[in-house]
Amino acid sequence: MTMSFTRGSVRNALPLVPFFIFLLIFLIIPTVSVVNGSISQDGSYSLDKLAALSDGAAMGALLKSVLLSAVTAVIGAVLGAVLAWLIVSSPPTSVFRRVVTSICSVLAQFGGVALAFAFIATIGYSGVLTAWSKSVGGPDLYGTGWLYSVTGLILVYTYFQIPLMVIVFLPALEGLRVQWREAAVSLGATSRQYWTQVAGPLLAPAFLGATLLLFANAFAAYATAAALVSQGNPILPLMIRTALTSEVVLGQAGFAYALAFEMIIVVAIIMVGYGLLVRRTSRWLQ
């Protein structure tokens, strides 16, 4: 009995082997070598590289990354929720909804480099809005080049965080049943009471979960920042770039691994929180 069961399982597992091998080679091994590379030095284990994370520049980059991610996650979540609320009354199959969700998908997921150039074209040195403001005697929008600093990144990141929030939050908003509102209203609730006492508490876990997702999204984002900021390392992803491209510098060897490891830890913590909140939401969102 046991034999035939085992043989059957093996035969059933065989077609899955290519998939597992592919993921082992191109996902698991790279991730493990980041972890391994950050705690090993010339074959023996050491915490030197991780200790280097507490040095001034690395800490500064981490703090700025956290700040950038937190600010754009909150702004993106609030404005994105409002935008989702504004478009939810159109049926999902309407042309309006299709166009809006397609735009949101493109901006949120596939923008990257293009979004950096979008803002360079708008408020860069010779940007369209900059030139217009100058021509009507308005303020100098370019200023001292704030677009290329963390302040600029907050603006540009917001441009992809709001659409991401719309995509993530729309299903939760649609999950609110009409009957719940009718029940509340028939019991004498005002619209305000419905939102603060029924819809609000129901949507809260979804909203918080989405905010965490936005945080992780901004924290791990690289392309937009890299295209916009060509020198200096204001944030963690750009510090990884420098460490990776200048490994010849003495003492920098392997530092990229430690920074990447730090990124894994932060994103993993955030995503665990996200997972817990999603599970809570999925209880009523069916």
């Binding site: 996902l27 991730t31 070598s33 980041v34 791990a220 990776l244 990447a260 990124m263 894994i264």
Partner: peptide, 21 residues
């Protein structure tokens, strides 16, 4: 789990670790 894992492991991390592969 494996298919959704790349959502949690940023591309930036993968590129740092994929040199040997």
């Amino acid at each position: 789990f494996l298919c959704l894992l790349p959502l949690t492991i940023p591309a930036l991390v993968i590129v740092v670790g994929m040199r040997d592969v």
